[in-house]
Amino acid sequence: MSSSRMISANGIEIFVTEQGSGPLVLLCHGWPELSHSWRHQLPAISAAGFHVVAPDMRGFGRTSAPKSIDAYSIFDMVGDMVALVAALGETKAIIIGHDWGAPVAWHAALFRPDIFTAVGGLSVAPPFRGRERPLDALAKSGVTNFYWQYFQKPGDAEAEFERDVDYTMRAVTFGVDASLFLKDGHGFLGDPTIPRPLPAWVSEQDHAHVVETYRRTGFRGGLNWYRNIDRNWELTAPWQGAKIHQPSIFIAGANDSVVTGILGGKRVTEMDRVLPNLKRKLIIEGAGHWIQQERPDEVNAALVDFLKGVRV
């Protein structure tokens, strides 16, 4: 059975759920999620002989949520994971992330190969650092309605998402994959008159847990990750063109708009440029963005096979 606790690391309090013993595996969730997103992976990975730890990431759930937007850079996120490894009494770990957690995992492997001996990403391919700030590039290409742009102004997206948290979670996390482009007359969530039934892979109990948590915390912490997109581009300049040499795995759903969209598609096709030691690229047909919840058996099998091959 899994257990939970608070751990002080990198100047904040990090809530973790953990299970098992053995080499350390960190699981980094995305937006708008919680460590609860990994509930299907903890028992499978621990049963394979690992100590698996899923934190609520900075700004989410029961983990600290600093007020300053500047406290949510990629350096802060990776710093949290580096400090968490040490706080858990370890010097090495394998790190896996989904959605926004994937860039954390990729950059952790890039910045600290001495600590992170293998890396996995779900739904978001490794970074190709472009020639200019991402938001500037979007604007120059004539795009004005991409969700990254909508999330920049503090308060706007928060107001939309917090108006009805139950509906928000049905529309975004547990609904049909949302469009990444806003439509006229609607915010990110789209037409509120459209019914949003829970899919078969989400229980009412799991949905209620996430809704209750976000009603308490609001959405500001997670949205602040997006408000550092251009700043992250500036901070990572020294790693321009760098490769991630550790063993790696990538898993995504074939119907995931992040993977098939204007930004993600090219990255998925060309990820070997960044990942010369890519062990497996698994694209699961018929699956969407919330892959480890939607198709846990296939994801677990792939992750356990990968982990056994790269055991710390």
Results as ranks from 00 to 15, higher is better:
190 G>H: 12
215 R>S: 09
240 Q>W: 06
266 K>V: 07
251 I>E: 01
248 S>T: 09
238 P>I: 00
214 Y>C: 13
238 P>C: 03
272 D>R: 15
209 H>A: 12
261 G>F: 08
276 P>E: 14
214 Y>E: 14
206 D>W: 01
247 P>S: 11
257 S>C: 02
217 T>I: 11
249 I>R: 10
190 G>F: 08
234 E>I: 09
203 S>I: 13
220 R>P: 00
222 G>T: 06
241 G>W: 05
274 V>N: 01
274 V>F: 07
251 I>C: 04
236 T>S: 05
270 E>T: 14
262 I>V: 13
266 K>F: 14
244 I>L: 08
258 V>S: 06
181 F>M: 13
214 Y>W: 12
190 G>K: 14
232 N>E: 01
240 Q>C: 02
223 L>S: 04
274 V>W: 04
264 G>M: 11
256 D>I: 02
237 A>L: 05
221 G>Q: 10
219 F>L: 09
218 G>L: 03
257 S>G: 11
245 H>D: 14
193 T>P: 05
273 R>M: 13
231 R>V: 11
228 N>I: 01
275 L>Q: 00
185 G>K: 10
278 L>Q: 14
207 H>K: 02
271 M>F: 12
213 T>S: 11
242 A>M: 01
244 I>V: 14
182 L>H: 08
236 T>E: 11
260 T>A: 11
241 G>Y: 05
200 A>M: 10
199 P>Y: 03
180 L>K: 03
194 I>R: 14
253 G>S: 04
